[in-house]
Nucleic acid binder design. Sequence first.
DNA 1: GCCTGTCCTTGCGCTGAATCAATTCGGGTG
DNA 2: CACCCGAATTGATTCAGCGCAAGGACAGGC
Lengths: 246, 246
Amino acid sequence: MTEAIELLPPRVHACGRQPGDNYCDSCKVRSLAVCAALGADELGELDDIVHHTHAEGKTTFIHQGEAAESVFSVTEGVVRLYKLLSDGRRQIIGFAMPGDFLGLALHNRYGFSADAVDNVALCRFDRREFDSLVTAKPHFLRRLHEFATHELVIAQEQMTLIGRRSAEERVAAFLVAMRERWARIKGPSVTIQLPMQRIDMADYLGLTIETVSRTLTKLARDGIILIVPEAVRVLDEKRLASIARA
Amino acid sequence: MTEAIELLPPRVHACGRQPGDNYCDSCKVRSLAVCAALGADELGELDDIVHHTHAEGKTTFIHQGEAAESVFSVTEGVVRLYKLLSDGRRQIIGFAMPGDFLGLALHNRYGFSADAVDNVALCRFDRREFDSLVTAKPHFLRRLHEFATHELVIAQEQMTLIGRRSAEERVAAFLVAMRERWARIKGPSVTIQLPMQRIDMADYLGLTIETVSRTLTKLARDGIILIVPEAVRVLDEKRLASIARA
DNA sequence: GCCTGTCCTTGCGCTGAATCAATTCGGGTG
DNA sequence: CACCCGAATTGATTCAGCGCAAGGACAGGC
């Protein structure tokens, strides 16, 4: 809700948080992330250093190898994070959605690139300011650590998906995972929004665009999903889940 | 050096650390991990809660899904961490070597299983004690967070390796990575120790045992490596690196 | 309305790695 | 030493997914 920011009187925090609130409405940071775990004081400090910004579709705003000068959180839209090989092969290491943090590694350089899949709204924090806030507030650091280890768990599951599972299993697991992520953000739905292109799914799943397309077609032919523009609709939840689960 | 522990007079810390040292000789924790970042006080506290233990080859000491009651660090030997699919397919998500920590996620349940590749010596910490130490010492937490984000970076690189690179590239990258890890522990060498079996390499790289074997044979035939029991010797460093690098 | 560009789907032949099947190697053990 | 057993290698064959190419759907510009 980028509009909400504009409507608020200036002396209220930019993100719309009221004193005592423990949820950052503008940054939409979910409980797993950071804000929800913070008291009003810490949230205030986060507000003090936040810069609201956004990126149009396809804009790259984090470049692998460059000095890590910002930490971001996504408030609207979807971001793809990826690594490029020198010959152009690409591996998407994750999609960041509203509530997710980027660039938490606290390393000097970014280990990946990031660009906007659609139009994206971001909270940007200066890394030095963010860093000293983290140092000053152990509780904050602890949440950050939990977020990072959760990311690690996801990454390990993704390794297993890519390393040991078939194309059909990968695509089904991706659909189920996307469905769950949207459910947390917008509530449950049989329609799974897929704002990214086929090539993004392919580069995320270690497949080619053709294989993703063929696999989706097969799932549709089997009556498990219905393919619609920018999304798929789940027709047979159980069968989809049974293909997706380990 | 498990022997070192035995030889020390009892009132000196079990790990052999002297007051003022900032490196835990028994736990052999590298700078990237935890100990090296801690002052003598924190190291003392770590000593107070450490239990030295070991695991014979093939023993499973962390079971995926079980309550996470311990945190470990490896002091001797190699540990494989893996996830199993219900049908028996296995993905090794990493090898832990001297100085590495296991079970840092601070989650309630382990997300992977771990067993000893060869004979392994471990420092075990009770998770609750470890947890409260972490909570009490922000500096410690910070190191832990750095360690976790480093693990995340490794995991993302592994995703790229498995998702987008050929069998030969995977094997070469694995050899180079193992070489660098041993170099940190024991110093540089042209001989790369490979205590794990072919099937472990295969399950780590998302390949089959036959493909790993054939690929090693090809590298040997090309004069890049020499295969010896439990290890390979690097003959042509440059060509190996050029296959391995992204 | 038509043209153009981009994305997606589909068909088809190809290929890298998987799978199946012998050997071979090497380290115990009696 | 001969035997055994698990690990590793090697060979033959298959196949899941790739790569290329053609065609279709859709959006934007004029």
